[in-house]
Amino acid sequence: QVALSRTQVCGILREELFQGDAFHQSDTHIFIIMGASGDLAKKKIYPTIWWLFRDGLLPENTFIVGYARSRLTVADIRKQSEPFFKATPEEKLKLEDFFARNSYVAGQYDDAASYQRLNSHMNALHLGSQANRLFYLALPPTVYEAVTKNIHESCMSQIGWNRIIVEKPFGRDLQSSDRLSNHISSLFREDQIYRIDHYLGKEMVQNLMVLRFANRIFGPIWNRDNIACVILTFKEPFGTEGRGGYFDEFGIIRDVMQNHLLQMLCLVAMEKPASTNSDDVRDEKVKVLKCISEVQANNVVLGQYVGNPDGEGEATKGYLDDPTVPRGSTTATFAAVVLYVENERWDGVPFILRCGKALNERKAEVRLQFHDVAGDIFHQQCKRNELVIRVQPNEAVYTKMMTKKPGMFFNPEESELDLTYGNRYKNVKLPDAYERLILDVFCGSQMHFVRSDELREAWRIFTPLLHQIELEKPKPIPYIYGSRGPTEADELMKRVGFQYEGTYKWVNPHKL
Rank of each mutant, 00 (worst) to 15 (best):
A358G: 12
A358L: 04
A433G: 05
G318K: 06
N423C: 10
L437E: 05
I469L: 11
Y434T: 04
G407P: 03
E501H: 14
N308M: 11
G407M: 06
V288K: 03
C382T: 11
G482V: 00
K357G: 01
C382I: 14
L419V: 08
C266S: 14
H467F: 12
R484F: 03
V397W: 07
I292M: 13
K404T: 05
Y398H: 02
Y340Q: 14
N411F: 07
T399W: 12
E284F: 08
P326H: 06
E413F: 12
D280H: 12
N259L: 00
G303N: 06
T333P: 04
R484V: 02
V300N: 05
S483R: 08
W346M: 02
V366W: 00
P478H: 12
P412A: 11
K272W: 05
D372M: 06
E435F: 03
D310K: 14
E342S: 14
F370N: 02
K272H: 07
L430A: 10
M408F: 11
A336R: 01
A458D: 01
S278D: 07
D372V: 03
K505Y: 08
V325C: 07
R354P: 07
Y340A: 10
Y425F: 15
K287V: 07
G482M: 05
I477Q: 15
V337L: 12
T420W: 05
M257S: 10
R345W: 08
V268W: 04
M257I: 10
E386L: 06
N343R: 05
N423L: 09
I438T: 07
I389H: 04
H371I: 08
Q392V: 03
R456I: 05
N259M: 04
L289Y: 07
I292Q: 02
T399P: 01
E294F: 12
I477A: 12
G356E: 02
L267V: 08
N423I: 09
L455V: 05
K357R: 02
D255Q: 02
P431D: 14
A297T: 15
E284P: 05
R362S: 09
N427M: 12
T403W: 07
E365F: 00
H260I: 02
W459V: 01
R424M: 05
L471T: 15
F442G: 03
F378N: 05
D279E: 11
D283H: 04
R495D: 15
E416C: 06
R282M: 00
A297F: 15
E395Y: 03
Y479V: 05
P273D: 06
Q258D: 01
T316M: 14
D372R: 09
P464F: 09
T503I: 10
L353A: 05
V450R: 02
E472W: 11
K290P: 03
I438G: 01
A335Q: 03
Y479F: 04
V428N: 13
M257P: 06
V341A: 06
E470Q: 13
D440L: 02
G422L: 10
A364G: 13
H379K: 14
Y425M: 06
D440R: 08
D490W: 07
G348R: 11
L471A: 11
L320D: 05
G356C: 02
L359F: 03
P309V: 14
N277S: 15
L267A: 07
K290E: 14
A458Y: 02
L430M: 15
M401G: 00
K404A: 03
M264W: 01
L455E: 05
D310I: 09
S483I: 00
L437H: 00
A458V: 02
F378K: 00
G422W: 09
R436Q: 08
Y481I: 09
A332Y: 04
T403N: 14
T316H: 09
I389D: 01
S293A: 11
E414K: 05
M270V: 06
M270W: 02
H260A: 03
V338Q: 12
A458T: 00
Y434D: 01
V325F: 03
D418C: 06
V341Y: 01
P323F: 06
A374Y: 13
K357S: 02
F442N: 07
G407S: 00
E344I: 07
Y481W: 11
Y319F: 05
Q380I: 07
A358P: 04
L471Y: 08
K400A: 03
V306E: 11
V373A: 10
D418A: 08
T463W: 02
N308L: 08
T463G: 05
Y434C: 00
N423A: 14
R390M: 07
L261M: 11
D255H: 03
Q369T: 06
R456S: 14
V391G: 04
D418K: 05
Y319T: 02
A297V: 14
N423P: 15
N427E: 14
I377L: 15
V268N: 05
V388M: 00
F370C: 06
L302R: 10
M447Q: 04
S415W: 03
W459I: 00
Y340L: 09
Q304M: 06
Q304S: 08
D432T: 09
V295Q: 08
Q499M: 15
L417E: 08
D321N: 11
Y319V: 05
H448C: 05
N308R: 15
R484I: 00
E491C: 11
K404D: 04
H448G: 07
M264Q: 06
Y398I: 03
T333W: 03
A315V: 15
G348E: 05
L430K: 12
G328M: 13
P309E: 14
S445T: 12
A335V: 09
V373W: 06
L368Y: 06
T276H: 09
F442K: 05
E472P: 06
I477K: 15
L339V: 13
T333E: 06
W506P: 05
L265K: 02
H467M: 11
L492M: 15
